[in-house]
Simulated assay, not measured.
Amino acid sequence: MSFAIVVSGQGMQHAEMLPWLAEDDIVRAMQRMLGIDDWRACARDPVWAGRNANAQVLLTGLALAAWAQLAPHLPAPAAVAGYSVGELAAFAVAGVFDADTALGLARHRAALMDRAAGANATGLMGVSGVSQSLLERMCEEFGLVVAIRNGIDSVVLGGLQAMLPRAVEAAERQGAHAVLLNVQVASHTPWMAEAARGFAAHVEPLSFRAAGMPLFSDAEGRVVQPPQLKHALAMQIDHPVRWDECMEGIAGRRVACVLEIGPGQALARLWNSRYADTPARSVDEFRSAEAIVRHVRKLLPTGP
């Protein structure tokens, strides 16, 4: 029995995230790609941090740097999955491609999505504690679509930016919890169809390796071989993220614990609300890499 890794997506990035993370080759490569010298200084500007072209590269690079600094001290994970853009780092953790390829894919993915979003100003909102009937009414009234399924009553909705604040207010009046996300495109919705087609064409000639560990895709469940991996990465851009199913797949591996790689604790909280007997924590909660390693090793069964 080992542990699982889940990689965060966009929306929670901030300047103080991952306080223990050291500058390494991956961080420096990420900063060069973004044309910056200090990612923390840049992330203090919420406009910069929320810009799609910055956030996707930033979060991919930081997740891969974090894992590179932890991996030598931990056993191989029993499963890995990434949430939205976190899927790029998850694929790299599973050995499908290297960190440089992941960063390049993040930059290309963001550019395609920004281009597809150019015709319409779109965004995302999170809503929880919502009934199916209320969800259907909101989607119909405000022209929204489900972008991410986190659980029975927790979803992320995509729509036009002009409609999202009104939808948040309507959800809160009905007793739900709703919040606008710091994301400037309606990821995982039909608004991104052009981006998905462009990304599929971009990855087609690239050399992918078969996943070296159980890898769960947002769009297709467990994925292993290169053709399936390429299709899954492109498909999730304009299809809903089925995170509830990713969690089910990981739970089926009977892991000892789950470690979230990235900013915030959103994925760890989702997991803990559903699988309380298998603890999940985020690396963003810790002050040192050594403390993270001790936490994971303490929860793993000891050998004979």
Rank of each mutant, 00 (worst) to 15 (best):
S133L: 12
F142Y: 14
E140N: 07
G95H: 06
L135D: 02
N120E: 15
A92T: 00
S84Q: 07
R109W: 06
A99T: 05
Q132I: 02
V146H: 04
L112K: 07
V96Q: 00
A147H: 06
T122R: 13
L135P: 04
I148R: 02
G82H: 04
G129A: 11
D98Y: 04
V93G: 04
D114C: 11
A119I: 10
V145H: 10
T122I: 05
Y83S: 03
R107D: 05
I148W: 07
M125Y: 02
F142V: 01
V145L: 05
A89N: 08
A121W: 13
L134P: 11
A99V: 05
D114G: 15
G86E: 07
Q132Y: 01
T101F: 03
A111R: 15
A106N: 02
G95V: 07
V146T: 13
T122M: 09
G143Q: 08
P77F: 02
C139Q: 15
L124F: 13
S84K: 13
R115P: 00
P77Y: 00
C139D: 01
D100N: 04
E140C: 11
F142C: 06
Y83I: 00
F142N: 04
L112V: 12
L112R: 11
G95S: 06
F97P: 09
D114M: 09
V85I: 15
A121Q: 14
V85S: 12
G95K: 09
A99I: 01
A119Y: 03
L105I: 10
G104A: 10
L134D: 15
A102C: 13
R149S: 04
D114S: 13
A90G: 08
G143L: 07
H108I: 12
E87C: 05
Q132V: 12
A76T: 06
N120G: 01
A76Q: 05
G95T: 11
E140G: 05
A121E: 15
R149N: 08
A119P: 00
V85R: 01
G126H: 13
V146E: 02
A78G: 15
R109D: 10
D114L: 14
G82R: 01
A110G: 03
E136R: 14
H108E: 14
A79C: 03
G118S: 15
A119T: 13
A117H: 05
M138H: 07
L112G: 10
G123W: 05
G118P: 12
A111W: 02
S128F: 13
